[in-house]
């Protein structure tokens, strides 16, 4: 439970961090909050020779309201979202979600960008990014590029961020007023990795769904936005029957693998349940 020896660097800017990445190549590893990396180093599952600590880079801290979207610096702590960072539906939704991320001390250290870069299938922020259509600002030797969330996640623990690149900022499009949001996750204990989770946003008028966003996480290699089901929801009455039917539809669209915490069959059932419940919460929120 003691890491293998490593060297440590603390750059003060994104460009300095990129220079270090270029210098150390395969042996350099970015560390942000360290809530996943440090345990795996202690288990010696990860053995970076060089750690590049980006916690002190001012330009990638904090959240700013850019009118139609929120811009989130990569090393913004989860705890920043304990209270709404913006009075809009998106700000309130992030506060609902953050309470499900691990435990209070972990939320003080862990970062938004670290969570996306690590790309754990059960990461709540990854589900938010995919469902809300986030855009990632990735910096590298050739400058900055923007990657939509749909192309960012490549698989379990795999993203579009190259070895010599750094995720600097995330842009989350706001939801217009009048939308309701709902999040539901199921885990064995409070704070554990979810066995399944869903995020829904609904625009409901006169009991009818006019527009929908729906994402499913922790079932499969990375979270997925269920656009086909969003289309199916549109025009339907916002009723428990609709939500149960959509959950049942989702069940046929996922192929989870089983593990010691739940069989594949169990997780498929659970996908239906969390989707129906997230939709129910979103409809309640919209009402």
């Amino acid at each position: 439970m003691k890491p293998a020896s490593f060297s440590y660097h603390k750059p003060g800017s994104v460009s300095a961090a990129l220079a270090l990445l270029a210098q150390f190549g395969e042996e350099g590893k970015i560390i942000a909050g360290g809530q996943s990396l440090v345990p795996s180093m202690n288990f010696r599952l990860a053995r970076p020779e060089t750690l590049i600590d980006i916690n002190h880079i001012a330009e990638i801290q904090g959240v700013s309201d850019q009118g139609d979207h929120l811009e989130i610096g990569a090393v913004t702590r989860h705890a920043t979202f304990h209270h709404p960072v913006s009075p809009c539906p998106l700000g309130r939704m992030l506060t609902k979600v953050v309470a499900n991320i691990a435990h209070y001390p972990i939320r003080q250290r862990g970062t938004f960008g670290g969570s996306l870069s690590h790309a754990d299938p059960a990461s709540e922020w990854c589900l938010v990014a995919v469902t809300m259509g986030a855009e990632m600002e990735i910096h590298g030797p050739a400058g900055a590029r923007r990657v939509p969330a749909a192309q960012f996640f490549r698989g379990t623990f795999t993203t579009a961020v190259g070895r010599d690149e750094l995720l600097a900022r995330i842009r989350l499009p706001k939801l217009p007023e009048g939308w309701g949001t709902g999040f539901y996750e199921f885990s064995r204990r409070k704070g554990d990795f979810a066995l399944a989770m869903a995020l829904a946003a609904l625009k409901v008028e006169g009991g009818t769904i006019r527009a929908a966003r729906l994402g499913l996480g922790a079932v499969g290699a990375h979270p997925q936005r269920l656009e086909a089901l969003e289309a199916e929801l549109t025009g339907q009455p916002a009723t428990p029957q609709t939500f149960a039917a959509i959950g049942a539809r989702a069940q046929t669209m996922v192929t989870p693998s089983g593990d010691i915490h739940g069989s594949a069959e169990y997780r498929r059932e659970l996908a239906a349940t969390v989707i129906a419940r997230a939709l129910t919460r979103a409809a309640e929120d919209a009402a």
Partner: peptide, 24 residues
């Protein structure tokens, strides 16, 4: 505690072996 058929312990950290907390 779960061993696989080869006798490898699959639950060798507190992420996989789940003592309940105050919340449970």
């Amino acid at each position: 505690l779960i061993y696989d058929e080869y006798g490898t312990l699959l639950t060798s950290s507190l992420a996989d072996y789940l003592p309940p907390t105050c919340a449970e």
